[in-house]
Design a binder for these strands. Structure first.
Lengths: 202, 202
DNA sequence: AGCTAAAATAAACACTGTTCAATTAAAAAT
DNA sequence: ATTTTTAATTGAACAGTGTTTATTTTAGCT
């Protein structure tokens, strides 16, 4: 078959990303197959290479889609939560976990996909990742008070993300079950609040 | 070929594990191949299935080997460090990171290998994992003072492990580089010390 | 020496990812 | 309206994978 008119380039891109996301959500990273994703979209493998250049490019795009859904999820969870005490921080951590739990395979795939250090990442993929970090930057910044948007705070935010990520990651991978912990989200939240309190003190 | 006498069952097991570990260290999880590991050991794929039952069983055994090496690494790093202040905690976190860094592919493979929730894990594999946790239990317990070896402390230790794991994991996967942090180990250590201080206060 | 039972293999199967010449359809040019 | 050009899509080929199973080989025992 040759050039078809059933989808514009943008539509095709979006279609393949949606289908890939659905497949990775259903099967998980290890059983994901580009061939199968293309098949479900009504195209053949070659098309994925045409559109995304490489499998890495495709997986990056699929994971970026997950990142964007995740950002929307967080904003919704924060919507209307008052700026009193640690309410918004709590909501943020809880939503971080609930997204991961309800999209476990897609969430884990983000971190299962290892890319060569030198492989260049498209700027829209970087943007999808930075979008999530920006939400945490904003919330922690607001909690810390005005004028807290400096380099040190940015650094702390990334460390807090790593903290929550660690709990969530070990939880979903099953390692935490092996450790007999039944509320990893609660533990993550406790750690975050302790760290923030320590930061405020100094 | 049939029954051979060049290795006892235990030797064969150990040989395959060593060879598998070396291969996964060299290539990383995604490019690991049971066929190739068997080839390097001078056997064929079937032997791996004979000895370990399944690929999951084999990978579990290979990763357990990494866990044991990791435990030895930590003990060596702790050897002789005085029980003053947070010296041993610091040494522990630093050694956690340095092992991961110097065995990056093998370390990441531990977490790249996803196993079905219901797949039963051999007790020696559980033991290898618990061995590492036990070291942290001991050190944090000692730091907290006598009589601190209760359930709450165990729970905290697992949360601290998750915290350090998160930093290490994002670091080696390259996500942290994307976030422009250049000393994740230092950040992890800071968080651990803040949490421990908070714990001591209450 | 012959028998038995265990261990190791080789081959088959159904999949992968990846590349690329051939094909097809749309757009442009005549 | 036809032809030509150009771009998109495919399908087949290749080298690899995990997994299963019938077959072969060998060590140990009688």
């Amino acid at each position: 078959m040759g050039r078809r008119s059933d989808h514009t380039p943008e539509e095709l891109r979006a279609l393949l990303v949606r289908e890939g996301h659905a497949l990775i959500l259903e099967r998980g990273f290890s059983r994901f197959s580009a061939r199968e994703a293309a098949r479900r979209a009504g195209y053949s493998v070659g098309t994925i290479y045409n559109v995304f250049g490489s499998l890495d490019g495709y997986l990056l795009a699929v994971n970026s889609h997950t990142f964007r859904l995740w950002s929307v999820w967080l904003e919704r969870a924060l919507d209307g939560v008052p700026h009193e005490g640690t309410a918004r921080i709590e909501a943020l951590v809880r939503a971080y976990f609930s997204f991961a739990a309800e999209h476990a395979n897609a969430w884990m795939s983000i971190y299962d996909h290892r890319i060569d250090r030198e492989t260049e990442i498209a700027k829209e993929d970087v943007a999808a990742r930075e979008g999530l970090t920006a939400i945490v930057d904003r919330e922690v910044g607001q909690w810390m008070g005005t004028g807290a948007d400096d380099a040190a705070t940015r650094r702390l935010v990334r460390s807090l993300i790593a903290t929550v990520h660690g709990h969530c990651s070990l939880w979903l991978s099953g390692s935490y079950a092996l450790m007999n912990e039944d509320d990893p989200a609660g533990q993550a939240l406790s750690r975050v609040l302790e760290v923030l309190a320590a930061q405020q003190r100094s």
